[in-house]
Design a binder for these strands. Structure first.
Length: 410
RNA sequence: GGCGCAUUCGUCUAGUGGCCUAGGACACCGCCCUCUCACGGCGGCGGCACGGGUUCGAAUCCCGUAUGCGCCUCCA
């Protein structure tokens, strides 16, 4: 994996990383992290940091130390000089250029796309080393592949034409030519490149929205790859075991946020209650909420079935942690008055008892349960949509519940 | 412009000449369940870009057209 050190880790790149990793782990190989830097600024360091943080969250680890392209600069220069000596490269205004053959064709078999062939006359002599001494990407990359003993190069389709050039360089060097897999891009909903206006685009944003890394891994794995005609939910282990390039498609995919949300919900609901609470607590900390951990943990089971991403929690269950303004129809006041009266006497204050007295009240008032409960819900939770009403009231406790019902009547 | 790649329901995809009156999932619509929402169950809508070939037979093979994307930097 060889990202450029530019800001946040984009999902498209993350998906390509994922394929790299799945393949490496599934075939007993190693997975390297190489930074394609052309300078050594502070921004590079920060960017590399950010990339590593994102990958760590994503749950993708690599083998060995992170290497930097620029560190191999002198080695590249030496290799280039050898090529000049061998007369396959030449000096040109201070730069070193590679001599492309004028006839014949260059071809290779792509693990995803099949046989790719280009007439050599379409390939132009390319700069290996700039006049200031820095190697170009198209030179440094194959040299590093050789140096690192890379057997498989997995990258985006924008590199197809680079691959042909790099193969020629590798052959001139007498180096082994790795296998190449060009995996399709991920687009936004309009067929255009994925951008901000389509939604989250960097791993950080998905984390921020409250998706579980496992859910995102599963979802992204299915963008451009499939196991069969019906399997969608797969653990990392299953993905590693099942992944193969011959089942990677060639056409670009669109990121469907609705499907991601569905899958996110599947993973969230599948978590054991204790782990769900853990995830919620640490998510809220990350997002800067100072809500009581114990209360969050007790609220967790009430929302686990209800929300599809952790980011919905503050909106959906915020009424446990802060005062609310009722937003909705509170009815003619009869229900609230009665609710206040019966709830005041509930003992013990448990969901079961609360439900019993409220249902009894509904019957007495000759109201359908839904009609009777809705004003109470709105008064207590502030919203027409909430976790289960009785459980919510229990957790909120008698004082706050009654205070809210009174306030709503004022 | 040149070269390359791609094109199956709205979206992700299965499909490698007969199993396809094209299967699954998400979304959407309807019904059921139900304290709201969600979950779950049942049902429905919906697609092989277009045109030629090859073949007894094509979503699948070939050619062309269209559309989209990528590359054509001393960018990565």
């Amino acid at each position: 994996m060889a990202p450029s050190p530019t800001g946040n880790l984009h999902v498209g790149l993350a998906r390509t990383f994922l394929f790299n990793w799945l393949f490496a782990r599934g075939s007993g190989g190693e997975c390297l992290l190489r930074i394609e830097n052309t300078d050594t600024s502070r921004e590079v360091a920060e960017s590399v940091d950010q990339i590593q943080r994102s990958l760590a969250w994503f749950g993708i680890e690599w083998d060995g130390p992170v290497t930097f392209q620029l560190d191999r600069m002198t080695h590249c220069q030496e290799v280039a000089r050898d090529l000049v000596v061998k007369n396959v490269a030449y000096e040109d205004e201070g730069a070193i250029r590679f001599r492309m053959p004028g006839e014949g064709a260059t071809c290779y078999t792509d693990l995803v796309l099949g046989r790719i062939e280009v007439q050599n006359e379409a390939l132009e002599d390319l700069v290996l080393v700039r006049s200031d001494g820095r190697p170009t990407y198209n030179f440094a990359s194959p040299v590093e592949d050789w140096l690192d003993g890379i057997t498989h190069v997995v990258r985006g389709p924008d590199h197809i034409s680079n691959t042909l050039k790099q193969i020629r360089i590798l052959e001139a060097l007498g180096a082994p030519v790795p296998e190449y897999a060009h995996v399709p891009n991920i687009n936004g909903g309009d067929g255009k490149k994925l951008s901000k206006r389509h939604g989250a685009t960097s791993l950080e944003e998905f984390r921020h929205a409250g998706y579980l890394p496992d859910a995102l891994v599963n979802f992204l794995a299915l963008l451009g790859w499939s196991y069969d005609d019906r399997t969608t939910i797969m653990s990392r282990e299953e993905l590693i075991e099942r992944f193969s390039f011959d089942r990677v498609g060639a056409s670009p995919a669109t990121l469907d946020y609705q499907k991601l949300d569905w899958m996110s919900g599947v993973y969230l609901r599948d978590l054991p209650p204790e782990r769900y609470a853990d995830a919620l607590v640490s998510y809220l900390h990350e997002e800067g909420y100072d809500w009581d951990d114990e209360l969050v943990r007790r609220a967790a089971p009430l929302v686990q079935e209800k929300i599809t991403k952790l980011g919905e929690f503050p909106q959906f269950a915020g009424f446990f942690f802060r005062d609310v303004q009722p937003d909705g129809d509170l009815g003619d006041g009869v229900v609230l008055r009665e609710a206040e009266r019966v709830l005041d006497r509930v003992e013990p204050f448990t969901a079961e008892k609360i439900e019993a007295v409220l249902r009894e009240m509904a019957e007495r008032l000759e109201l359908q349960p839904r009609k009777a409960f809705q004003p109470v819900r709105i008064a207590v939770t502030g919203s027409k949509v909430s976790p289960g009403l009785f459980e919510s009231i229990e957790l909120l406790g008698p004082e706050r519940t009654l205070a809210r019902i009174r306030a709503a009547q004022a």
